[in-house]
Nucleic acid binder design. Structure first.
Lengths: 189, 189
DNA sequence: CCTAAACCTTGACATACATCAAGGGTCAGG
DNA sequence: CCTGACCCTTGATGTATGTCAAGGTTTAGG
C-alpha cells in the first residue's frame, strides 16, 4: 500500500530520495467502509489523505438540505479540506468515501514537520494546493457555462469512470442537477 | 501608491521589515483605463497584481460566447491567473479592469527571485493561493446551492459594493444569471 | 434467506429562468 | 449640442429543469 505513495513521490521528487523513507514513515494506512466519514462539517480537518484505492467525496449541504458535491478524488491523488487543515479551523465541507477505500493519512503536526525538514515536501504541498485550486476554478467555469446536457457530456468525455462507478445520486450532486434529470439525459446521449 | 502595499505587507509580515524595501522595489505601478485587459485567454500571465484602486474582473468565455465572471477583486487584494502564472502556460481566463484602476505589478522573474531570497514572501504566496482557492470553493458551493434570488440576496449581504459600483451586465455574469433576471429580482428584494 | 430500505426510472405537472423584442435613459465622441 | 451606441428595464413567450408521485429493482442488514 505504501508502495503506491512511494512511487507517486519519486515520480515527483526525482532523484531526491534521501528523505523519502522519513517522509513515508509519517503516513498511516487506513481502510474505510462504504460511506464512511473522514470529516464532518464543523469539525477541524486534521489530516491530508492520499487515496490508494477507492475515492473521496468532498461536499457541503445547502440550506434546503441537498448535498453539493464539489469534488470527487480517486486513486493516486491527494485530498483534504485545505481551508480547514491549513489553519486548523472548523471545516465548511465534509469528506466521505462512497466506496470502501484504502488511504494513507498524515496528521497536521507531522505535516508541519515535513514541511520544515524536507523542502521538497513544501513544494509538493504547493502543487497539491495549485491543482486543487485549478480544479475549483475549472468547476466554476464549467458549471456556470454549461446546461445540464453539456455537463453530462463533459463528464462522459473527461471522467467516464465517475458515471460507471458511483451512484446516480452522487453523480447528479456533482453535476449540480437532480437524479431524475440525469437519468433522462443519459438515455438521450 | 506604493504606500498601500507597504502597509499591506507590514500587516502580514509583522516586524520582519528587513527585506521590505527590496521587495517593494520590484513592484511597478501602473494605471489602466476602463475595460482595459491585463491578460487575454490564451496568453501567458506574466504578472501578479496588487490592486491599489479600482478592481479586476477574472472571467472566461463559454461555447455560446457568454462571459463567465469567476471573480472580482477589489482594492487591497491580489489578483493573477495563477494557473497560467505558476507554470507560465497559456491562460484559460482573462483579466480586465472594469473601472480605471491603479495596480502594482510584479513580474514572473522578479517573483521567483523574491520567493527564493525572502522566505516570508513564499509564505505570502501560499496565503494568496489559499485565499484564492477558498474563494473558488465557496463559489462552487454557493452557485450550486442557491437559486437566482438567493444569489442576489447573498451578494447584497456580502459584497453590496459590487451591486452599486459595477454594471448590471457584469454583476449578472458574476452571479450566473442574465441581466434581465437581475433587474427583476432587484425590484423584488 | 427474508424483509425493509434505498435507489433508479418514468410520467405528469409546475415554475424559475432564459430568450426575444421594444422603448427610454444615459453617456461619449464628433 | 447632436447622435449613435450601449445599457437598463419591462413585457410576452418558450423551455429546460425541478418537484412530486408511483412501480420495479437492487442492496444491505438481521
Amino acid at each position: 500500500m505504501i508502495q503506491v505513495l512511494r512511487q507517486h513521490l519519486t515520480d515527483r521528487l526525482g532523484s531526491q530520495t534521501e528523505h523519502l523513507d522519513t517522509v513515508l514513515a509519517y503516513f498511516e494506512p487506513m481502510e474505510t467502509r462504504r460511506n464512511a466519514f473522514l470529516l464532518q462539517t464543523g469539525d477541524v480537518c486534521r489530516h491530508v489523505y492520499f487515496v490508494v484505492r477507492g475515492c473521496v467525496q468532498v461536499f457541503s449541504v445547502n440550506a434546503a438540505g441537498d448535498e453539493i458535491t464539489r469534488d470527487i478524488v480517486f486513486e493516486g491523488a491527494w485530498v483534504s479540506q485545505l481551508e480547514s487543515f491549513g489553519q486548523q479551523l472548523p471545516a465548511t465541507e465534509s469528506l466521505r468515501t462512497p466506496e470502501p477505500s484504502q488511504l494513507l493519512a498524515i496528521s497536521y503536526p507531522h505535516f508541519g514537520q515535513m514541511m520544515q525538514t524536507v523542502p521538497q515536501f513544501a513544494e509538493i504541498y504547493r502543487q497539491i494546493l495549485l491543482l486543487s485550486f485549478n480544479n475549483a476554478v475549472y468547476r466554476v467555469n464549467t458549471l456556470m457555462g454549461m446546461d445540464a446536457a453539456d455537463r453530462v457530456r463533459w463528464l462522459l468525455d473527461h471522467q467516464p469512470n465517475i458515471l460507471t462507478r458511483l451512484s446516480s445520486r452522487l453523480v447528479a450532486s456533482y453535476l449540480g442537477i437532480t437524479p431524475e434529470t440525469l437519468t433522462r439525459l443519459k438515455s438521450k446521449i
